[in-house]
Design a protein around this nucleic acid. Structure first.
Lengths: 125, 125
DNA sequence: CCACTCCTTCGACGGCCGTCGTACCATGGC
DNA sequence: GCCATGGTACGACGGCCGTCGAAGGAGTGG
C-alpha cells in the first residue's frame, strides 16, 4: 500500500511447493534458459541480468528470467538499480531429488566448455 | 534389398553419442511422453505400444514413441505384429550423468501414484 | 532537475509442434 | 484367401511460445 505506483522493488520468488514438474521441464527445455543456468553455475556467484551473454533482446531475456524464477530454478533480488540472480539448487531438490543437480551439470557441459577454459585462466586466443 | 517394399520390421534405435541435450529436454518436456516413461518405469518390463494408457490418438502416440526413441530414452523392437518398448537408463547415463534417472523418478512421482497403489494391491476404492 | 542506465510491460507476429483423421502396410489366425 | 489387429505415413490445422521494438518506471549521479 505504501507504494501504489509501479513495481515495489521486491521480487516474489516462487514457493517451491507450488512448482509443477511440467513447469520445471518447460523451463529447462529452452536453450537460452539453459545458457543462463550454465553461466550462473560456472560463475559460482550471483550475476546481474545485464551481465549474461544471451543471443536475444533485453525484453526476451526478462521473459526468460521470469520463467526460471517461477519454476523455482533461480532466485532474484534487487540490489540498487540492478537485479541479481542466483541458482536455487537446494529447495527444489526436496521436490525433485537429484533433478536440478543433474540438469545444471548437463547445462554446464553443454554451454560451458569455452567459459570453463576462460575461468581456468587458459585464455583461448 | 531383400525386402524392397515397406518397412523391414526392424527399428534403428538412436546411438546415444548423437543425442543432444536439446533433444532430450524437448522429449521429456511433454506430459504425454513423461506418462509413457512413468508407465514403463512402474511396469518394470517391456510394454507394447497399444497397452499404454494415453489421452491421445494412435497416430499421435506413434509420434511420441518416435521422439522418445530418437532421444535415446526408450528402445523399441518388433515382436510379431506388436512393437515393444523399454527404458534405456544406462546408455544415456554416460552422456548425462544422473539425468535420466532423476527424470524417471520425477515422472513416476508425477504420474504414478494411482498406478503404484494398484501395483501394490491396494485397490483404491 | 535532468540525463543515463537497467530492467519491465505491452502488443504484435511468426514458426513450430502436438493433435487429428484417413489411408495404408504387415502379420497372424480362421 | 481374407478379415482382424497393431502400428505407420501423410497432410492439415490450431494454439502456444519465443521473439522483437517501442514506451516507460526506477534508481543513481551529475
Amino acid at each position: 500500500m505504501a507504494r501504489p505506483k509501479t513495481t515495489p522493488r521486491t521480487v516474489d520468488n516462487a514457493s517451491v511447493a507450488e512448482v509443477t514438474l511440467q513447469q520445471f521441464m518447460e523451463a529447462v527445455a529452452d536453450p537460452v534458459r539453459r545458457s543462463v543456468i550454465a553461466q550462473l553455475a560456472i560463475a559460482g556467484h550471483d550475476l546481474s541480468c545485464g551481465t549474461f551473454d544471451l543471443p536475444v533482446s533485453r525484453s526476451t531475456a526478462t521473459h526468460h528470467f521470469n520463467v526460471l524464477r517461477e519454476a523455482g530454478i533461480i532466485r532474484q533480488h534487487y540490489q540498487g538499480t540492478t537485479k541479481m540472480n542466483s541458482l536455487r539448487p537446494d529447495d527444489l531438490d526436496t521436490r525433485f531429488p537429484g533433478l536440478l543437480r543433474a540438469v545444471i551439470d548437463a547445462c554446464v557441459r553443454e554451454n560451458g566448455q569455452a567459459a570453463e577454459a576462460r575461468q581456468a585462466g587458459v585464455r583461448p586466443r
